[in-house]
């Protein structure tokens, strides 16, 4: 456990500048968006040609987020792409290049599953750090909005409405606990499948590329096809919707368990440097 935590710490330490970079990109991108969009919208409200402002027609932070869909989503999409890239980099950087750190990692006097789990934990932590940062940033952006917009034209926004006003926030920050667990559980499953694919490639090299592609395809098919096979899109399905959801959850859990077990086995028995 102690060595697992040390490995997690090391992984976070190695990614810290990359993570700070993504946070800085989101911070700068979204604050500029809020500042510019709010100033523009506030100017429109001051236009004398505009009819008088009543209480129902005020400028809200929710409106600013709603009209800036793309600019709010862009840094998050870049961060998501960077994290997806990092899922591969977190393994390959230790094999490739002048410093083959994998020699050292595989020779550590600790169970090799700790390597796998520490990398997985690090990725999950990065996702949640970025999500938390986004939530804090939204609150900060709302403050900036308050500084720019005079009180007489400023409408109040409920935080949940702000989240629901951007399509990407709505996806990444689901308001129900079960949706949150499903979404991030699905994400963790996807990462374990990719980790196993990477380890298949590292274990069997050229043949491993084929094995990895086949493994990802098989997992993808199992997860994607199950609801349809159970009749999720048919009116007279034998199963209730919640039953289909439960079976799909079980399939995802099974795919995750098989991926992790296969990953451990490859690390213990097949991997080489």
């Amino acid at each position: 456990m102690n060595r697992y935590l040390k490995l997690v710490h090391m992984e976070i330490h190695r990614f810290r500048y990359f993570l700070l970079g993504l946070m800085a990109l989101t911070l700068v991108g979204q604050i500029l968006t809020v500042a510019i969009a709010t100033s523009n919208e506030a100017a429109k409200f001051r236009d004398p040609a505009r009819f008088s402002i009543d209480s129902a027609d005020k400028l809200s932070f929710e409106w600013i987020v709603r009209i800036s869909q793309g600019m709010f989503a862009l840094p998050i999409l870049i961060s998501m792409a960077a994290l997806l890239f990092y899922v591969f980099l977190i393994w390959y950087r230790d094999w490739l290049g002048r410093s083959t750190f994998m020699y050292r990692l595989l020779a550590l006097p600790t169970a090799r599953r700790n390597l796998y789990l520490s990398k997985l934990t690090a990725i999950v932590l990065f996702v949640f750090v970025l999500l938390s940062f986004q939530l804090i940033l939204l609150a900060f952006e709302q403050l900036i909005f308050h500084w720019i917009v005079p009180a007489d034209i400023r409408g109040e926004s409920v935080f949940t409405d702000v989240i629901l006003s951007n399509w990407l926030f709505e996806v990444l920050l689901p308001l129900s606990g079960s949706q949150f667990v499903s979404l991030y559980g699905f994400g963790i499953m996807a990462v374990t499948v990719l980790f196993t694919a990477i380890l298949l490639e590292r274990s069997y090299r050229i043949w491993g590329i084929g094995y990895a592609a086949a493994y990802v395809a098989a997992c993808g098919f199992a997860v994607y096809a199950t609801p349809f096979a159970l009749g999720v899109n048919q009116l007279g399905s034998y199963f209730y919707q919640w039953e289909i959801f439960a079976i799909e959850a079980a399939v995802c859990f099974l795919v995750t368990a098989v991926s992790v077990a296969l990953g451990f086995r490859l690390l213990n028995k097949r991997i080489s440097v």
């Binding site: 083959t100 994998m102 020699y103």
Partner: peptide, 26 residues
């Protein structure tokens, strides 16, 4: 083990590499 190549990340300082070894090896 003394491998035929440097088996520590390029970005690591030597002091950190020594600490890494101290952390993991009793």
């Amino acid at each position: 083990f003394v491998p035929d190549r440097i088996a520590m990340p390029s970005s690591m300082k030597l002091a950190d590499a020594l600490q890494f070894m101290a952390d993991f090896y009793a």
